[in-house]
Lab assay of single mutants.
Amino acid sequence: LTDEELVTMSVRELNQHLRGLSKEEIIQLKQRRRTLKNRGY
Rank of each mutant, 00 (worst) to 15 (best):
L36Q: 03
V11R: 14
T2D: 03
L29A: 07
K23Q: 11
R33I: 14
Q16A: 12
Q28K: 14
L18S: 04
Q16G: 06
G40C: 14
Q31S: 11
T35G: 09
R33C: 14
E4S: 08
E24V: 09
S22H: 04
R33G: 01
L6R: 00
G20C: 06
K23P: 12
Y41G: 12
Y41V: 14
T2W: 02
R32A: 02
Q28R: 14
Y41K: 14
E5P: 00
I26K: 14
Q28S: 11
M9G: 02
E13F: 02
N15Q: 10
R32W: 02
E5C: 13
L14H: 00
R33T: 04
L18C: 14
D3A: 02
L18N: 02
I27K: 13
E13G: 02
M9A: 03
L1F: 08
K30S: 05
K23W: 09
T35K: 14
R19K: 13
H17T: 05
K30R: 11
E13M: 07
E25L: 13
Y41R: 12
T35L: 14
E24C: 06
E25W: 04
K23H: 10
L36V: 05
N15W: 12
M9V: 03
L1E: 00
R39D: 14
Q31I: 13
R34A: 12
G40R: 10
H17A: 11
D3F: 03
R12E: 14
L18F: 14
Q31A: 13
R39Q: 15
R32I: 03
E4V: 07
E13D: 07
L1W: 06
E25A: 12
K37M: 12
K37N: 05
K37Y: 05
L36C: 01
N15C: 15
G40W: 14
K23Y: 10
S22C: 04
V7K: 07
E5A: 07
L6A: 00
E13Q: 09
Q16S: 08
E24Q: 12
K23C: 04
E4F: 13
D3H: 01
Y41I: 14
Y41D: 12
E13T: 05
V11E: 13
L36S: 03
N38V: 06
R39Y: 11
D3N: 04
R12A: 14
E25M: 12
E4I: 10
Y41N: 13
R32V: 01
H17G: 01
R39G: 14
R39E: 15
K23G: 06
N38P: 03
N38R: 07
K23F: 10
R34E: 13
I26F: 04
G20F: 09
E4R: 08
L14D: 00
R32L: 04
R12Y: 10
L36P: 02
S22T: 11
L6M: 01
E24G: 09
L36F: 01
K37E: 07
E5G: 02
E4L: 12
Q16N: 11
D3G: 01
L6E: 02
T8Q: 14
S22L: 05
Q31V: 10
Q31R: 11
K23L: 11
G40K: 12
D3V: 02
S10A: 04
E24W: 10
V7I: 12
T2H: 03
G40N: 11
L18P: 00
N38K: 13
E24H: 10
V7L: 13
T2A: 04
N38S: 08
I26M: 08
E25V: 12
L21V: 04
L6I: 04
Y41Q: 14
R32M: 03
R12H: 13
E25C: 08
K37H: 08
E24M: 10
L6K: 01
Q16L: 12
I27G: 07
K23V: 11
L1A: 01
K30D: 03
L18W: 05
E25I: 12
H17I: 13
L36Y: 02
G20T: 09
T8P: 01
Q31Y: 07
L14F: 15
E24N: 09
S22V: 04
L29V: 14
L36D: 03
R34C: 14
Y41P: 10
G20K: 09
Q31E: 13
N15Y: 12
R33A: 07
D3P: 02
Q31G: 06
L21T: 02
E5N: 05
Y41S: 13
E5D: 10
T35N: 15
E25Y: 06
T35F: 14
R39K: 15
